[in-house]
Write a protein that binds this DNA or RNA. Structure first.
Length: 262
DNA sequence: ACAATATCCTGCGAGC
DNA sequence: TGCTCGCAGGATATTG
């Protein structure tokens, strides 16, 4: 489920717990999640170094080190980080463990292996194709309505497919795309060519507002007062009481209100 | 260039 | 009870 707000929480978690501590050991329990380099290289490049800073790009957590290599972490759908005493029981699906000299671990845990850990030369996160081709960061103040309007011109795909496309805009997944469209009162199968200026502005504003609010609420979509009821086909729309409808867009189930979303 | 679809990963629940 | 099937969602590869 990690989308932009969730990844932002993971970033803050790492920044609070794991910066400026020497890594005395790196254990790769599952090499499938190590991307770009061999396990051996991954371990040797990160052993005896420190994580010194963090950033986020879309759904990637970027971790800077004090050696010549940096680390990008993607959580796929099921991944998360766990900082704990190294003596504590290893969680199921622990894929990679960093052990610091303070005898604590930072563990990358992920049931399904849809994410991964990418080692790149210093600062060169654009070596990762998804990042290289990534659209604008929605919460960046430089991402303004004029930019958004230009991006949408000539695009004929369904609005929800584009919201989930990382090359169009960064960090939005299935759940937040539904939530943004619910708040903007726009159907997920609409196309930009049919939008009037007011709808486009409303959509732009809701992208920023929903993501900001989710971060403020610690990424819990449940904290929305009238959130789109995900995975609840046939339930009542929290805004108008009409039945929630489900449909497939871009291979993903979309939930929307046929009455309030136009 | 763009749009749409198939595929991978793993566990779970529905249905037979 | 035990099997298969389909689904969950992020991203990529492939096809149109």
């Amino acid at each position: 489920m990690p989308e932009l707000p969730d990844v932002e929480m993971q970033r803050r978690y790492l920044a609070e717990n794991s910066l400026n501590k020497r890594i005395k050991d790196v254990q790769v329990h599952d090499s499938y999640v190590i991307k770009g380099v061999s396990d051996q290289e991954f371990v040797s490049k990160l052993k005896d170094v420190k994580f010194i800073d963090t950033d986020r790009r879309g759904k990637f957590l970027e971790v800077y080190t004090d050696s010549g290599y940096d680390l990008a972490i993607h959580f796929g759908m099921t991944g998360h980080l766990k900082y704990t005493l190294k003596t504590s029981t290893l969680e199921d699906y622990t894929r990679v463990v960093f052990t610091f000299t303070d005898d604590h671990d930072l563990r990358y845990v992920a049931m399904r292996k849809l994410g991964g850990l990418f080692l790149v030369p210093e600062g060169e996160f654009t070596r990762i194709d998804t990042i290289k081709n990534m659209g604008p960061e929605p919460l960046n103040p430089k991402f303004n309505f004029s930019t958004f309007e230009k991006m949408t011109r000539g695009r004929s795909a369904k609005v929800k497919a584009l919201l989930m496309d990382q090359a169009f805009i960064a960090g939005i997944g299935n759940l937040f795309a539904d939530e943004i469209l619910f708040q903007a009162e726009i159907r997920p199968d609409r196309r930009f060519s049919e939008f009037d200026e007011e709808e486009l502005k409303k959509l732009f504003d809701e992208i920023k507002r929903v993501l900001h609010k989710a971060i403020q609420n610690k990424a819990r979509i449940q904290d929305f007062e009238d959130f789109a009821p995900h995975r609840r086909e046939g339930e009542d729309c929290p805004r108008c009481g009409y039945k929630i409808h489900a449909t497939k867009i871009s291979g993903r189930t979309s939930y929307y209100c046929e009455k309030c979303q136009k």
